[in-house]
Design a protein around this nucleic acid. Sequence first.
DNA 1: CGGATCCATACCCGTTCGGTATCATGATCG
DNA 2: CGATCATGATACCGAACGGGTATGGATCCG
Lengths: 293, 293
Amino acid sequence: MIDIRQMRYFVALAETLHFGRAAERLHISQPPLSRQIAALEKELGVRLLERGSRRATLTHAGRRFLEDARAVLAAYDQACRNARLADLGELGELSIGFMMHAAYTVVPRLTRRFVDKHPLVRIELREAVPSLLVDAVLAGRFDAVITFDPGPMRGVAAHRLHEERLCLALNPGHRLAGKAAVGPEDLPGEPLIAAPAEAVPTLHDAIVRYFRSGGIEPSFRLEAQLQQTVVSLVAEGLGIALVPASMSRIGYPDVVFRELEDAPSVAHVVAWRPANLNPALRPFLAEAGVPGM
Amino acid sequence: MIDIRQMRYFVALAETLHFGRAAERLHISQPPLSRQIAALEKELGVRLLERGSRRATLTHAGRRFLEDARAVLAAYDQACRNARLADLGELGELSIGFMMHAAYTVVPRLTRRFVDKHPLVRIELREAVPSLLVDAVLAGRFDAVITFDPGPMRGVAAHRLHEERLCLALNPGHRLAGKAAVGPEDLPGEPLIAAPAEAVPTLHDAIVRYFRSGGIEPSFRLEAQLQQTVVSLVAEGLGIALVPASMSRIGYPDVVFRELEDAPSVAHVVAWRPANLNPALRPFLAEAGVPGM
DNA sequence: CGGATCCATACCCGTTCGGTATCATGATCG
DNA sequence: CGATCATGATACCGAACGGGTATGGATCCG
């Protein structure tokens, strides 16, 4: 059987055209080299070098085999290197799911940092509503997801990435637009626009709790899954909304944002299945600041 | 050192995900396979399979390595196959020089037959005047050349490919255009157009000998290297010419061809240096009908 | 809980590889 | 033109490695 070693030997010999010097370069003595080359030629059934007494010359077949052997060796080295890189999580694929809102907060910077440090990992970024994300990570559809903190869950670990207060989004003509800060007691009966509990439970719950802390029951009027849609509907004068403060940084016309007294906050987390064996997950979590990664 | 064999073993194992079955497919028993795989993993420093008690599964790094190992094996097989093909002259390069005139006689068919039978040999076809061709073959510039027979030469073998008679090319208004056949005695003083002796010695000599066989000295008026040019000059009425009969098959306007009495003939030969080691030369010569090739 | 399945380990033997010593051959030089 | 040198091939030896059989340990299944 022809060996990688024999190819290495042949390439060294073809490059020096001198058995002694080639053997030296290979850190073996000359006779084994002669024998290995002879064995290679015999195995191939092809004479690769013409031995002159002063120097050897490649035959046509030898020239051809030199090129091909170099290609084999390159592929071989590549394969070994890639296996190690893949094991370290520096090479491979990583699929990340995230709620659309995170595209305005942590996703861009985190992605940028990760791809800068791990350029060989292909990242697949997919947007989804938060309630689907955690199920997807459990099902193995995503290696990690970025979403509002869903609380503790079996088989899923999570790490807090980002926290922001909710604020009030109003149409500029609204009666509360003149106030600097607003509390729950200012809001009874106000038509609310918010994401449905089934799609974004964490945020929905935070809003309900905030209202109830002031002894008030919220009255939801319109539902939309994305915060961007919610704010657009506010701009249209269809109601008010409690949205993450980062939404105020986007330049929406016909919307003003007001602080809430004792504003509730929502956290972004990165969540993953600890049993997930994708080696690229670890560097990603490290980049996200997860301790011990 | 990681071995081609270990890669083969790994691919077989990755394809069956079963040590016993993979070993069977490899015609070895299971323990050596286990050991080789373990050695491979140790060498790489990477776990490639997760051994379940019922079946094994590839790790991410293992999946990657499977792809790369397949690529290595493919390159390896390719290299071995190519070496054998190159040695048989079925793969490689062949440079053929030929006189332009042969493009109308033997070159097209010979080339077609050769490329049909030996599709992996890249042929480099180069036109040149006959006097340069034989020097070029001696210098190694061409592996073989096709030209008028230059006679025996040191270090060059030749084989006759094709023989054709010379005929007379005339302007239709010429006084001899009415004769069916012409002999040397009809030609004294006629202004001749022909290739120069330095460029096409064989043909030039044949023409001179033919005239002298009738006791006449030829009077050369114009010289051009290519037979096509010679005939074009005849069409223009600048003189007469003795050209290979195959020129008459090309539809030149304003030229008529007449047979010569006791017409001299010129041979096309393929010529090569017997010391030439290009394996592709032999099949080419075989295709050209050279005996013993 | 017992048997079956499957991979890992232990041990043996034959092959192969690399090393040293030496030979055959062709180039080089006085 | 013959002595010398350089180079690759061959002979032989000891160590390493690969493959084989026997067996152990873990897990799954009925």
